[in-house]
Design a protein around this nucleic acid. Structure first.
Length: 712
DNA sequence: GACCTGCTGCGGCTTG
């Protein structure tokens, strides 16, 4: 039987009314499988290939919505995505008379109240809203979600390997616990190309044996062009901006310049050029610090402008699945930090069937060019960096312990231990470890013993009753920027924020008129010229494979026809800098440059391994500076022979706990990469540092194979 | 120099 015929009549009518000529391959496959089994499925297929329908067409055909209770729970990482999907799912559900309810922080309370009165149909939710319900109204979780048949997780790759993912995994397990019947889980993703990740994904959903992967590998042709314009960190080179303008003025374009300040610079400067030559005015910026309503307007404009061209300069806010309509070209300025990110960005263009995607890569620095090239080549080899999954997420456990104790308002120790240990998210954390963490939380007054039960303690109350409790990630403090009551966006307090300073924000130029430090507000008026704003942030970690590929490119002579002449020359120049080394194995060998009484060790490895090497050198009192972009260590006061000996003999396991404890005592803020880590006993903070900040196992293997090649 | 993500409950107001 064909997939179409397996669907229920109302759904078939929907497809006929939509005048679809055929089902997409991923839909054909998923309908066959979902209709006939109760397995979990992970649907992998590129952006705009109809994944949402691939999940919902069969689910809506199969599930009996006549019985009371919510039957399908859709979980998304973004509110914007929920709002987007709501429209699509609702238009489908009209054929079945099944209600769809949005449940997130910005969703209508009236709709939520209606659902509480009559729990039914489909609910779209964020993990944080689900968490909030578990903490504050656990009876509502039971009331609404104890008759689930399907849970759909959108953009599942965005959860994988992050604390937010572990959190979601824990919530899924808690959800299953209140359901008498087992529900099935369908995960949707565009960015999984490595089969190694299948097992991680399956484990993420629990019950690996019942989880199957359905994948559509139809490739999308992409035309890539690399260009090189030497520039500085402060400002983009004018020739680059001019070239970029000419190349994009007659298209619908997304530009990814990596940093928010630079996003503003690109938007403002292209707009200025366009004004001068009488081009279109539709230049926008889109990132987390642009006001939400402004961002929504930009998304709306892009989605509805079929005739007008536009240019949106943006960060990863436009990387995930929000439908912004047709984009002709994607521009990446300097290297992406991951291949996964490159894939998502490329996927934003050429959504029209059969149309090729265009990708322009501009580099302003030789090493960034090399990194871009490495990412592009790996992308073509269908490689994606592995996701790192923390098997002992002590910090997430702290959060979930608080959540469980609060939801019970009184729970015995054995019951709490049983609850948390039975959760697959914490499978590898031992009983002893769990008990020690609970004990510690009692000593810092997060928990209090009341008779035989644990309740939330005085300090715990402060944390649990704060609206910041529900998420697993930290958010910095920002000042709200507005002009005459109109919100523009927000900025962090920096040396730049002073009265009469001019800054870019939301693709416009503003002059700061007043700063209110009490209410954290900045009043601005329009201005003629200014500077890009300063934001603070951490650089994302780069995977070992990207660095290795960079070294591979340098050690071979291969020419790439997609590089422009200047870019080609830059690669040749970089290669010549390494020509004094005889490299025969780019996987194991690494160059050590001896020059002017200084040594430069090019490690070409991951950020985490570099951090670990840095720690080892520091602990041996070897003065060193790491250049993160070049993945290179400058080492002073040592000979090449001494450095070689250090690397070959270094016994990194020795004293490491002592060193890390010292590090934490000297600088407790180092644990701030984990929002909940600071509430752990010191020895667990050390474990967390080892697992997530450094990479001792990776470093051990790296050093074990390492062969240092010098230029002497 | 360096990304992103979400948010309860309640009192008090306006609006239909």
């Amino acid at each position: 039987m064909t997939a179409f015929n397996l669907l229920s009549e109302p759904i078939r009518k929907y497809i006929r009314d939509k005048k679809w000529e055929s089902l997409r391959p991923i839909q054909e496959a998923s309908i066959q499988r979902i209709m006939s089994t109760d397995n979990n499925y992970i649907l992998i297929s590129r952006t705009a290939s109809g994944k949402t329908e691939a999940a919902f067409l069969p689910i809506l055909s199969k599930v009996n919505f006549k019985e009371p209770g919510v039957k399908v729970l859709y979980i998304s990482p973004l509110i914007a995505l929920i709002n987007d999907q709501f429209v699509r799912v609702e238009s489908l559900c009209e054929y079945l008379d099944v209600p769809v309810t949005k449940w997130h922080g910005e969703a209508s309370k009236g709709a939520k109240d209606r659902l509480l009165k009559t729990p039914e149909g489909i609910v779209l939710i964020t993990p944080e809203s689900l968490e909030a319900m578990f903490v504050n109204k656990p009876y509502n979780v039971r009331h609404l979600f104890s008759t689930l048949e399907y849970v759909v997780i959108d953009e599942i790759h965005s959860f994988l390997g992050s604390d937010r993912g572990t959190h979601l995994q824990s919530l899924l397990s808690r959800l299953q616990k209140i359901n008498a019947k087992k529900f099935s889980v369908i995960g949707l993703s565009a960015t999984v190309s490595d089969a190694n990740q299948y097992s991680e994904l399956k484990e993420f959903l629990g019950e690996s044996d019942y989880t199957k992967v359905i994948r559509d590998t139809t490739p999308k042709p992409i035309n890539a062009v690399f260009k090189y314009f030497p520039g500085t960190v402060e400002e983009l080179p004018l020739p680059l901006l001019k070239d970029l303008y000419i190349r994009t003025r007659e298209s619908k374009v997304l530009i990814f310049p990596n940093a928010r300040g630079r996003v503003e610079e690109v938007a403002v400067k292209l707009k200025q050029i366009s004004e001068k030559v009488g081009g279109h005015k539709n230049y926008f910026s889109h990132h987390s610090s642009v006001d939400k309503e402004v961002r929504e307007y930009v998304e709306f404009f892009a989605k509805n402008s079929t005739l007008q061209n536009f240019c949106i300069s943006c960060t990863s806010t436009l990387e995930l699945g929000i439908d912004i309509g047709n984009v002709d070209e994607v521009v990446q300025i300097d290297a992406t930090h991951s291949i996964a990110s490159l894939i998502q960005r490329v996927g934003r263009s050429g959504r029209r069937e059969g149309k090729a995607s265009n990708l322009f890569l501009y580099a302003t620095d030789a090493w960034s060019l090399l990194q871009s090239l490495a990412c592009w080549l790996l992308y073509q080899e269908q490689y994606i960096e592995p996701v790192y999954i923390n098997k002992k997420p002590y910090d997430v456990m702290v959060h979930q312990l608080l959540s469980i104790v609060k939801s019970y308002s009184g729970i015995s120790l054995p019951k709490l231990v049983e609850e948390i240990m039975g959760n697959p998210a914490f499978l590898e954390i031992t009983l002893k470890e769990t008990e020690e963490i609970i004990f510690h939380l009692t000593t810092i007054d997060f928990f209090e013993k009341l008779g035989n039960e644990l309740i939330i303690g005085i300090e715990g109350e402060k944390v649990v009753n704060n609206k910041d409790f529900y998420s697993l990630f930290n958010t910095p403090v920002f000042f709200k920027v507005s002009n005459n009551g109109i919100k523009i966006g927000e900025l962090p307090l920096s040396s730049q924020i002073r009265e009469n300073e001019n800054i870019y924000l939301s693709a416009k130029i503003w002059s700061i008129k007043d700063i209110d430090y009490q209410t954290k507000k900045i009043e601005v008026i329009p201005a003629k010229d200014g500077k890009k704003p300063k934001f603070f942030g951490d650089a994302a970690d780069i995977a070992h494979m990207i660095r290795e590929k960079m070294f591979e490119i340098l050690s071979f002579k291969e020419q790439y026809e997609f590089l422009d002449d200047v870019a080609q020359q830059m690669i040749i120049l970089l290669r010549s800098e390494f020509s004094s080394f005889t490299i025969s194995d780019f996987k194991k060998e690494r160059p050590l440059l001896d020059h002017n009484e200084k040594l430069t060790f090019y490690s070409f490895t991951s950020s985490r391994i570099n951090r670990t090497i840095e720690l080892i050198l520091d602990s041996l009192n070897i003065k060193n500076t790491l250049d993160p972009q070049k993945s290179a260590f400058e080492i002073e006061g040592h000979t090449a022979e001494q450095v070689k000996t250090v690397f070959t003999n270094s016994c990194i396991e020795q004293n490491i706990d002592e060193i890390l404890t010292g590090l934490l005592e000297g600088n407790p803020a180092i644990i701030d990469f984990s929002k909940w880590g600071k509430y752990l006993p010191i020895c667990y903070q050390v474990k967390l540092l080892k697992e997530k900040y450094f990479d001792f196992e990776g470093c051990r293997i790296y050093l074990q194979d390492l062969k240092i090649i010098d230029n002497k």
